[in-house]
Computed example of a mutant assay.
Amino acid sequence: MGVRPASFVQWYVILELFIAQEEGRKLSITDLIHCAGTPRSTILKAIADMAASGFLQRTPDPQDRRRVYLTLEAAFHERVYGLLGDIMSRQGETR
């Protein structure tokens, strides 16, 4: 997982998934498309790139095989958690 997300859309997806996982919610690809306010193709490309890099896991909905839920891969979730913690602690140092 040496590749780092680079685009705004990728970071948007990461943060939405991170928050949802922390709150115990599931997000589908469709949920992300509706929330993002960017073209469907842009979100789908970001998801495909991050899944190929090992940042995301796709899980089919057992009740509706057309729906796919996304989660951050566990190790990547921990990296994001650490990064956000560092940012928050630095914010506290500057205030």
Rank of each mutant, 00 (worst) to 15 (best):
V3H: 05
V3I: 11
R4S: 04
R4W: 02
R4E: 03
P5A: 06
A6Q: 14
F8C: 02
Q10E: 15
Q10L: 01
W11C: 13
Y12F: 15
Y12D: 14
V13E: 07
V13I: 15
V13C: 11
I14T: 14
L15T: 11
L15A: 07
L15N: 14
L17D: 04
L17W: 08
F18N: 01
A20H: 12
A20L: 08
Q21Y: 02
E22W: 06
E22D: 08
E23W: 12
E23R: 15
G24F: 13
L27E: 08
T30D: 14
D31C: 12
I33C: 04
I33P: 08
H34R: 15
A36P: 05
T38K: 15
T38G: 01
P39V: 05
T42H: 10
L44M: 09
A48E: 14
D49H: 10
D49L: 05
D49T: 06
M50G: 03
A52N: 08
S53P: 04
S53K: 08
S53L: 00
S53Q: 06
S53A: 15
G54H: 03
L56A: 15
L56Y: 09
D61V: 07
D61I: 05
D61N: 10
P62D: 13
R65G: 02
R65A: 08
R66C: 02
T71L: 01
E73P: 02
F76P: 03
F76R: 01
E78P: 00
E78M: 01
V80Q: 00
Y81L: 01
Y81D: 02
G82I: 00
G82Q: 01
L83E: 06
L84K: 00
D86S: 04
I87M: 09
M88K: 12
S89D: 14
S89H: 15
R90I: 06
Q91W: 01
T94W: 09
T94A: 10
R95S: 05
R95N: 10
R95W: 15
